[in-house]
């Protein structure tokens, strides 16, 4: 019960971050969506054993988080919450892929371990970028931006409703879980027997609540379009932001900058 309510508050906090003002927050949502998209594509397009060349991409969160005044610890915690799922995905890489890729004296590091580490770093970077995007833009503006970038409106509105429905569902689940817990006297209640009907009730209640919210939206002139009161325009700062990051990502993707740096420092080719 507490964890559900805490999760809602946590989720709402991410949305609230978007209401702040910073040089990043005031930028047009479209450039932030584009930059994030190119960042994610660049990061995931590396080979599975790539590790070192991913590291320079940390410059993106390292610059964006302080500039946007986002709480680092909070974001780190949110990303860490997802890491068990990533570990599950890559868990068997070290078991099946035992070819040693690197050899340090007697110790050989297999390709499996390298690919697992690469997967973790990629998830850190991409999930982090997505959180930075939502934290500096807000989900509503992200949806508006993707619509203005050419995604059909129906998809954008569906996404928005999905986002709203998460809060409605979570609120109702929190209430239902509390009611159940209070009447099960510290035991497991009726267990699975009551679970089915509880889920059914939850669905119906959420449905009704979502309908009431929709009615409230209709009563205030909602016709399937979300408007934003923040004026957005594609100006010089947007252009600099877009070109700056894009050229950096492309350079990092096509040129082995850590390798070149190593070569420059040690004087030998890697």
């Amino acid at each position: 019960m507490i964890s559900i309510n805490a999760a809602i508050i946590d989720l709402k906090r991410l949305e609230l971050l978007a209401g702040r003002y910073s040089p990043i927050h005031v930028l047009d949502a479209r450039v932030k969506v584009l930059v994030t998209l190119v960042f994610i594509v660049s990061v995931v397009s590396f080979g599975r054993y790539e590790l070192v060349r991913l590291l320079p991409f940390f410059i993106f969160p390292a610059v964006m988080i302080p500039l946007a005044n986002l709480p680092t610890l909070y974001l780190a915690r949110k990303i860490a919450l997802l890491s068990p799922f990533v570990l599950m995905v890559g868990l068997f890489n070290p078991v099946f892929d035992r070819n040693a890729l690197y050899q340090f004296g007697q110790l050989g590091i297999s390709g499996g371990w390298i690919s697992l580490a690469s997967l973790l770093i990629r998830s850190l970077l991409t999930v982090g970028a997505a959180f930075i995007l939502v934290g500096t833009t807000g989900f509503t503006s992200v949806c508006q931006a993707v619509e203005r970038l050419g995604i059909p409106r129906i998809f954008a509105v569906q996404l928005l409703f999905l986002h709203r429905y998460i809060f409605v569902l979570a609120d109702e689940t929190g209430t239902a879980a509390r009611a159940r817990e209070l009447r099960s006297c510290g035991k497991r209640g009726l267990g699975v027997v009551s679970f089915g009907s509880q889920m059914g009730h939850l669905l119906l209640r959420t449905w009704q609540r979502a309908e009431r919210i929709h009615t409230a939206m209709l009563a205030r002139g909602f016709v399937g379009e979300f408007h934003s009161h923040r004026q957005s325009r594609f100006g010089v700062s947007e252009l600099c932001f877009l070109l700056g990051w894009l050229s950096l990502f492309i350079a990092l993707r096509y040129y082995d900058i850590p390798g070149a740096l190593g070569e420059f420092v040690t004087g030998t080719a890697p």
Binding site: L16, A18, G19, G138, R164, G221, F222, E225, H229
Partner: peptide
């Protein structure tokens, strides 16, 4: 249903 009070009050007029 909007993230802030301002957004909520602005919802109708924007529509």
């Amino acid at each position: 249903f909007m993230p802030t009070v301002f957004d909520d009050v602005a919802f109708g007029p924007l529509n």
